Amino acid sequence: MPDDYSEVFRRFGIEPQASIYPYAPVFRGVIGGRAVAVKRTNSAEAMGRWVRYLAAAELPVVTPLADPHHIAGHDWVAYPWIEGRPYDGSLADIRAAGNLLGRLHAVGDAEGSTGLPGFEWPDHDEESVQDDVTGLGKVLATYRPDLRREVLERFEPLLRAFMATTLPAIRDADLPVADVSMDFKAVNLVYGQAGPVLVDPDNGERAPRLLDLALAVLLFHNDLPGGPARLFHEREWAVFRDAYLVHVRPTARERELWPTALLYMLLEWGVWSAINGGETGDWDDSRQAAFLADLLTVDITHYPLESAQVS
């Protein structure tokens, strides 16, 4: 049975409607004469403090118009509707996005600045690892049988070694943490004359900033209607990275563990995205299917953290 959002519409005083976003409920409306987006949020009080902290630091991010409503076990907020255009894939838009992520990380490193929830490290057992291997094999057999053998031969040993190697290398390294979005991708940015605005901050956590950067490398073009059906090209990454590095100076430990951070996010979030795509219909969409195939065959050595001059 479809979810019933009638109480959400009633409490916010907006018209009943279908979600404007396929992966989560997001509704448009007008409150007090102002256009809004109504959506769920996590850790509502801390999230509100975080985005207001960012706004006070002149970071372009949406902030709630009022206190959240708690409805059917979830916190819902109304954000102002941001006018602008979507990401266009140009180097200028990529540079602006990298600059914004660097600024977010630079202001988000203050200890205890907002009280966002801490990052939760995974705890996989043999059964859950086997579920990932089986799930990955299933979607590939159905949608990309030509890639099934190549991808499984690469990913299965990495998934089985994750808890003993990749996870402790990152978890136990005492990497710098910050208040980060953990969902910094193009579909969550709206571009105006002054640059991009982060319009979906609601997955924010206090987490190693290196993982947030790695996530942006891998999933920046994910779920992007009409956008590039692939990860960054090497020059695009260099532009994004160099804009980011204007604001953040990685530590020696971060530079050392950068390839491991990319592998961590590929095994955790990349594999999940591919498997979940079999349930959400992503593999039936030609654009998204091409992106997921590129994700599963990515060469992470194409994304070095070292800065390079890009004209």
Rank of each mutant, 00 (worst) to 15 (best):
S19G: 07
D172Q: 09
A106G: 08
E306S: 13
L245E: 00
R171E: 14
L54T: 07
W237L: 03
L100H: 06
P122G: 09
L198P: 07
G13M: 10
A290E: 10
V129Q: 14
T166F: 03
E7T: 12
S90N: 11
M265P: 00
G137C: 07
I300R: 14
L91P: 00
A252Q: 13
M265L: 14
E236R: 03
E111L: 11
G226R: 05
E268N: 13
A24K: 14
L292S: 05
A164F: 03
R34Y: 06
E306G: 10
D200G: 02
S286D: 14
E83K: 12
E127A: 15
V61W: 06
M1N: 12
D179Y: 07
R206T: 13
P304R: 10
A106N: 11
D284S: 14
D88K: 04
H124S: 11
S43R: 11
I82G: 02
G84P: 01
Y143N: 10
E7W: 06
A96N: 09
L116R: 14
F12N: 00
V139L: 08
F12V: 03
W258S: 06
V26A: 15
L257D: 05
E150Y: 11
V239W: 06
F184A: 02
A173I: 07
D179F: 07
P168F: 11
V30Q: 12
V77R: 03
E83S: 15
D202L: 00
L175V: 00
F162D: 01
G226Q: 06
R10C: 08
F155W: 01
R255A: 11
E205Q: 14
R52C: 08
V199M: 00
R49Q: 09
D93T: 08
